[in-house]
Design a protein around this nucleic acid. Structure first.
Lengths: 343, 343
DNA sequence: AAAAATAATACAAACGTTTGTATTATTGTT
DNA sequence: AACAATAATACAAACGTTTGTATTATTTTT
């Protein structure tokens, strides 16, 4: 029959055993207030009748959904997926599920998604704000309403009620560029991402700092702040950049692995030898770099771990007592340089 | 203050305006049973008081959560992420959210996740069963309990109450191999995936069919059914395979883009020229193949669209009346061969 | 064997909505 | 002005749990 069956509920078990709903509920909870023999009868009957607790009713009653909302700027970037995996792993081990949404790099969608989270479906939020997010009032509002929050990636330190998970972008990028310099490179190009993102600002700072330290002039021409928000355009933007250079660089520091790969592709197409003529270093370390020929040297960022830590911070907040002020925590994770064939 | 604020609810608005909760509820719903002027007062007060509807209470009352559960075998495969994107897009446009879980290629985890979905958090399920899933009783059970379900990727046609979204794997793979044959290739290797998966079985069939049609002998040695469930091992398995070949093939048909890339990497390392000495063709088309040098020719599979269609089928089921038997629907999407540099 | 202590269970309110039915207020008809 | 028709609103049950308090049953103490 195609008829949707009525679910069995506590009441059904209670009626069959001639006990109260409360007793059934407590028996299933292993609450010591119910007699051993009663508990056994309840458990057995529940199993026999195919009882499944109703999560929604539980949530309404308890005020907890055990769901964590995760908001990322885009799905098609392995970094974010990897962070989500980390969040998911930690969350599941602590009896939480995750609900992932994408803000599609738009401030408006970000707000929209947060509003939907605010409707009580999630107990807390892990968020990477979009580059468009200048104003963080919507975040502070939500936090002041009691919504626990953790920020990662494009963090905004002015959001005072949230915890943060980050890496030291400037230092990492400094290390990458210094590494190139120590290989004797002098004309090092910089391929950055959207300028409004703090991570890319910081990586640029690190680049400048390294050049400055070693007294290498900064050629504006060698710097690209890649603006594309979608895969399809990044390719073209990078191709154009290299096509219009007058000095060819002897090394490239790319702010993401993907930029690094696109750079190598472009260079290989124009017959350059990597790493002999041009060395390339990326940022991220997400598997693709390893497959490419030549394999991409990069700054390895612990994406999975970032997710785990973010989940940990959030779940800690969820377990804090409500009437005590939350003190902001910032976790900074280490990166490391992984040398492969492209340098 | 760090105190978690009490949320404002319908009752608060009702009390402030001296009307009943029912009226407030209906006013916010734009139900014509409430007077225009009352509606306006309610809307205004709700806004003023910062009212946010409680999704959980709504769900309990209405019996719908407007959440779709999505269960995929693994996160770290762009194909699945792309399908999820498609699901997400269609779902959002129809006022549904998606809750993604991974079965981590394990039948036990699959069952566990489905049980958790069964607790009433989701209105329906979109699922790619794991290769371990021999027995589909757990799926039929769930369906017979009234849970709408759509299968994709590793579909199991014997699950009679679910809709299916698929491509014609055998035909597509036949086309790929035929393409290689028409390029004059005679020794075509096959890199497949886990044998238990129907998609890989079908792709193997297509390979054999094409060779047979053109009277090309099948060398067992040239066939690899890649068994690795994790990124790290696939690499090695493919490397080993090519290292132990006595005949070197003049072409390779790889059942996923990733296998195709790993194949190219391995061949390039051993000094082979692609496509001159060995042509390579992949399956999937997820962006990486385009970046690689040489760019990977492949069978392009409409992953995003598969997600959209799956969501569409599911939401259609959700809108069907419960007391009518669901008739199974199968949607088959077209693939196409995209020629790039590797052939 | 009665009183006290404790164990086991039942009752009922609460969580925040929706929605069918009952009630009251307003309008229209004659 | 009385009555019907209709519009607007209120009441209350329902969704399926949890949990504090009240009640009943059993055991212990004397």
């Amino acid at each position: 029959m195609g008829f949707k069956k009525r679910r069995v509920k506590l009441e059904d078990i209670a009626r069959k055993l001639n006990v109260s709903i409360a007793t059934v509920s407590r028996a299933l909870d292993k609450n010591p207030r119910v007699k051993q023999s009663t508990r056994e009868k309840v458990l057995e009957t529940a199993k026999m009748m195919g009882y499944m607790p109703n999560q929604i009713a539980k949530s309404l009653s308890s005020g907890k959904t055990n769901i964590i909302g995760v908001l990322i700027p885009r799905y098609d970037e392995p970094f974010f997926i990897e962070v989500c995996r980390g969040i998911d792993q930690y969350a599941r081990n602590h009896n939480y599920k995750i609900l992932i949404s994408s803000s599609r790099n738009s401030y408006e969608f970000e707000k929209e998604n947060l509003i939907s989270f605010e409707r009580g479906l999630v107990d807390g939020i892990i968020l990477s704000p979009t580059h468009e997010t200048k104003n963080v009032e919507h975040l502070n509002d939500l936090i002041s309403k009691g919504m626990p929050m953790v920020l990662f990636d494009n963090i905004r330190e002015e959001v005072s009620g949230a915890d943060h998970v980050k890496i030291d972008d400037e230092k990492s990028s400094f290390a990458a560029v210094e590494f190139l310099i120590k290989k004797g490179k002098k004309k090092i190009a910089f391929i950055g991402g959207i300028k409004q993102k703090k991570v890319f600002q910081d990586r640029y700072k690190g680049y400048i700092a390294a050049l400055t330290k070693y007294n290498i002039p900064v050629y504006e021409e060698l710097v690209l702040h890649c603006n594309s928000l979608h895969r399809e355009f990044e390719d073209k933007e990078i191709l154009d950049f290299f096509n219009h250079l007058s000095h060819t660089p002897d090394a490239v520091f790319a702010c993401t692995d993907n930029y690094g790969l696109l750079t190598m592709k472009t260079l290989l197409k124009t017959g350059k030898k990597i790493p002999q003529e041009v060395a390339v270093i990326g940022f991220g370390d997400l598997g693709l770099g390893e497959i490419f020929v030549p394999a991409l040297t990069c700054i390895s960022q612990p994406s999975f771990e970032m997710g785990q830590k973010a989940a940990k911070l959030l779940i800690n907040q969820l377990n804090e007592s409500d009437d005590v002020d939350h003190k902001k925590r910032i976790i900074q994770l280490d990166t490391k340089l992984i040398e492969r064939e492209s340098t």
